[in-house]
């Protein structure tokens, strides 16, 4: 915990973009998942992007949904690492598109309480957490797959999907501590808003507030905060 706090203060001092972001995140933690700091598009220099890259094992993921450009670089990197080919439907992390307007990246939050593991009816659990890396793994031999799907239903972020061929849940193992999606998102980001998928928790309970929304709700939220900032808050007529 102490180590984590130190990291965060490091980030705060290093990088102004981060600070702006954390302010927004604090609002989110305060109650509704408000994504208020979206108005300004500021280019992020390569240096600033690099300073966000942690050197050691990453035990959590974080996603700043408002930064997503919907390029799906994360899906490409994820499926390439785990499947050996580019296959977005078998990628763990995935990006949904709603109304053709907002993109919602869906990640595993590696919850402390792990409702997916809780829900697994098999003993010993067919879905379990790797103590060392904090990644979620599947026991291919005992998992019941599509006919069970209890973990899919339990996931508060609706992250889990089934592999199109094997029918087993696609879980995030954090690539053993160096997630490909985080690297891909950084690499992809000439993105003026900065990367969207980032390594490790950012504290203040933000992760929980971000986690407990379904992709639909996240999309709704992004829509409201991105696109309806008018006095009336209403959508215009054509």
């Amino acid at each position: 915990m102490e180590r984590e706090e130190k990291e965060h203060s490091d980030i705060l001092q290093k990088d102004t973009t981060r600070r702006g972001f954390l302010k927004g995140a604090a609002v989110a933690a305060g109650g509704a998942v408000a994504l208020a700091t979206v108005g300004v598009m500021k280019p992020v220099t390569a240096k600033a992007a690099e300073s966000a890259k942690p050197a050691k094992i990453i035990r959590h993921l974080f996603v700043e949904r408002q930064n997503c450009t919907g390029c799906r670089g994360c899906e490409f990197a994820c499926s390439l690492f785990h499947e050996g080919v580019v296959r977005p439907e078998a990628a763990r992390v995935h990006v949904n598109k709603y109304k053709g307007i907002v993109d919602v990246p869906v990640i595993c939050w590696h919850c402390e309480d792990a409702p997916c593991i809780e829900a697994c009816p098999v003993e010993p659990k067919a879905i379990y957490k790797d103590e060392k890396t904090n990644g979620i793994l599947i026991n291919k031999d005992t998992c019941l797959g599509a006919k069970c799907s209890k973990c899919l239903e339990a996931c508060p972020a609706q992250f889990l999907r089934l592999h199109p061929d094997t029918g087993l849940p696609l879980t995030c193992d954090l690539c053993g501590g160096d997630p490909e999606c985080v690297k891909a998102c950084l690499a992809q980001s000439g993105n003026p808003q900065g990367p969207c998928i980032m390594g490790d928790k950012l504290g203040f309970g933000v992760n929980l507030a971000y986690r407990d929304v379904t992709p639909e709700e996240a999309a709704e939220d992004l829509m409201n905060n991105f696109f309806y900032p008018n006095e009336t808050g209403e959508r215009g007529e054509r």
């Binding site: 979206v38 108005g39 598009m41 450009t69 919907g70 390029c71 799906r72 670089g73 490409f76 907002v102 993109d103 690499a187 992809q188 980001s189 000439g190 993105n191 003026p192 808003q193 991105f226 696109f227």
Partner: peptide, 14 residues
Amino acid sequence: FWKRHVACTHCPVH
């Protein structure tokens, strides 16, 4: 006016 940059598949140019 602008709020979002949007990219096509796997495009860093958005």
